[in-house]
């Protein structure tokens, strides 16, 4: 893509993308760290996640400020407009993801005495979700449709695993009532992870909109892929 004739606008767009990626990096780290605090029962890590969430919130405000002024002053159109619209949406999803990671960390702090007993499924779930987030951010960074589709595709697995994990959790709690506190913690963590995955999907969908100008939200994955491949054939 050739350079913008208005240098400052070009600079602003670049800086906007960088800020989103920085924020995404912080969110990804927050999710990883919160999961480490869960698995290693490390309250200091949990505390760090909670402290760092302020930085994420601050970035959200800063990015919102930027997009607002760019809308008002630059009157963006086409690709620029879609980038800014996508940014406005993505920033909310990232911020919510950050909050959910913070929620996991808070749960760890509250249940310090009753750590998780069964971690394997939740660990797998966390890996999947973290990869989803990474895919979404990669997709944004490189305008990579494949990564975005992978992220959306992965959500099915996440949902399946989340349901299996909850069933499993329920059986543990039914078997042994002493497991209930840990089970509730596991349930909270699982729910937050699943939601983070949903936000990652939102981000991936916005990336697709940003790149192709098609809204693939609220359609099933096949249809979305079909729409995109149809478009891809045309190019």
């Amino acid at each position: 893509m050739p350079e913008h004739t208005l240098k400052r606008f070009e600079d602003e767009l670049t800086s906007l993308k960088e800020k989103i990626l920085a924020m995404g990096g912080l969110v990804e780290k927050a999710v990883r760290r919160s999961m480490k605090s869960v698995l290693q029962v490390d309250t200091s890590k949990a505390q760090k996640v909670i402290d760092r969430d302020r930085a994420i919130n601050a970035l959200e405000v800063e990015i919102d400020e930027m997009t607002r002024s760019m809308l008002a002053l630059r009157q963006p159109a086409a690709g620029d407009l879609r980038l800014i619209i996508a940014t406005i949406k993505i920033v909310t999803d990232l911020e919510r993801s950050g909050d959910l990671a913070e929620g996991i960390a808070e749960a760890v702090l509250q249940s310090e005495e009753n750590p998780l007993t069964h971690t394997s499924t939740i660990e797998t779930l966390a890996d999947l979700v973290i990869r989803q987030v990474k895919d979404a951010l990669d997709a944004f960074a490189r305008s990579d449709l494949d990564a975005a589709l992978k992220c959306i595709e992965r959500d099915k697995k996440v949902n399946k695993l989340y349901k299996a994990m909850q069933r499993e959790n329920l059986t543990y709690m039914l078997e042994d009532p002493r497991q209930i506190t840990a089970g509730l913690l596991a349930s909270t963590i699982g729910k937050n992870l699943e939601r983070i995955g949903d936000h990652a999907v939102n981000i991936a969908e916005m990336v697709i909109y940003m790149v192709k100008g098609h809204d693939v939200r609220h359609v099933d994955h096949k249809t979305a892929a079909a729409i995109l491949s149809g478009e891809l054939d045309e190019d």
Binding site: M1, E3, H4, T5, P76, A77, A78, G79, L81
Partner: peptide, 8 residues
């Protein structure tokens, strides 16, 4: 390019 002001 034209609409977004990338006039080359």
């Amino acid at each position: 390019d034209y609409i977004t002001g990338r006039f080359g």
